[in-house]
């Protein structure tokens, strides 16, 4: 390795360390200012809480034995809604691809459903399925499935027409075109949809938990706001951001092992 190359590599490494350093610095600064302002009475910690109070709230949740229960409930609902949404999404996308006329007929309906804020359907779902976990999972699925269908279907359509011609010149039937060409060709697109959908599902789950209000992180936030316990609300938000990050990281990790780097 030449001297110049060593310097170059060192520079890249230093830059990376510097970026990480700044990221942590920013976090500490924000938390520090928040804590300081609360301690000095610059802001009212009753309505804006403080990092130490959030920490205490999370600890007390842990002590009471409910912390992991709430996290688990939310995670479970998200994952279930996610799998159902993806499975249904792939299935419908395949049907749309298989029967172009079905796609044409349904096109305006998808446009409307896609732009409709699914939260508006919440009360209806609640009445139909009752105030229980079924409603929450259905909500998560509903909010993710439309985006999944549209995304996956678009990916299917992006296949190079020459490749389809090639398959046909080998007398391939539709199943074969689907499995040999369409699916593997859409791998990247599928992975992108997974990433998008895990956050969509989380939105659906929290929305559902707001409405059902029995357990889960969404319930903690809702309950906290109703009894005007802002410590609990912000703790809920913090837990939620951690959970969202973990779920996203898991999907990214799966993507990495699934898509080989050539």
């Amino acid at each position: 390795m030449s001297h110049e190359h060593k310097i170059y590599l060192r520079k890249i490494r230093q830059e990376k360390i510097f970026i990480h350093f700044c990221q942590f610095l920013l976090l500490f600064l924000l938390l520090g200012i928040w804590q300081f302002a609360a301690d000095k009475g610059i802001i009212d910690s009753f309505i804006s809480s403080s990092p130490s109070k959030v920490w205490d709230t999370i600890l007390s949740l842990y002590d009471s034995g409910t912390l992991f229960h709430h996290i688990w409930v939310t995670t479970y609902e998200t994952i279930l809604g996610f799998f159902m949404g993806m499975t249904l999404g792939v299935l419908v996308a395949v049907i749309l691809w298989w029967f172009p006329n079905v796609a044409k007929v349904l096109d305006p309906y998808f446009t409307v459903l896609n732009s409709l804020p699914k939260v508006a359907l919440g009360p209806i779902i609640l009445i139909w399925c009752g105030a229980n976990q079924k409603s929450i999972i259905l909500m998560a699925m509903l909010i993710s499935v439309i985006v999944a269908i549209l995304n996956i279907y678009q990916g299917f359509q992006k296949v190079d027409s020459q490749k389809i011609k090639l398959m046909k010149s080998f007398d391939a039937n539709k199943w074969q075109i689907c499995f040999y060409l369409i699916f593997p060709n859409s791998k990247k697109n599928l992975m992108e949809t997974l990433k998008l959908n895990i956050s969509m599902c989380l939105i659906g789950v929290i929305m559902g938990e707001f409405l059902v209000s029995k357990e889960g992180i969404g319930y903690l936030i809702m309950y906290g706001s109703q009894v005007f316990n802002l410590n609990l609300v912000i703790s809920g938000v913090v837990l939620l951001s951690l959970l969202a990050t973990v779920l996203y990281t898991v999907i990214s990790f799966i993507e990495k092992i699934y898509i080989k780097k050539d």
Binding site: K163, K165, L181, P184
Partner: peptide, 13 residues
């Protein structure tokens, strides 16, 4: 045997 304008090789194979 048909040979197309592009090679149309499947990148994942």
């Amino acid at each position: 045997g048909y040979m197309l304008q592009t090679d149309a090789l499947f990148e994942w194979l």
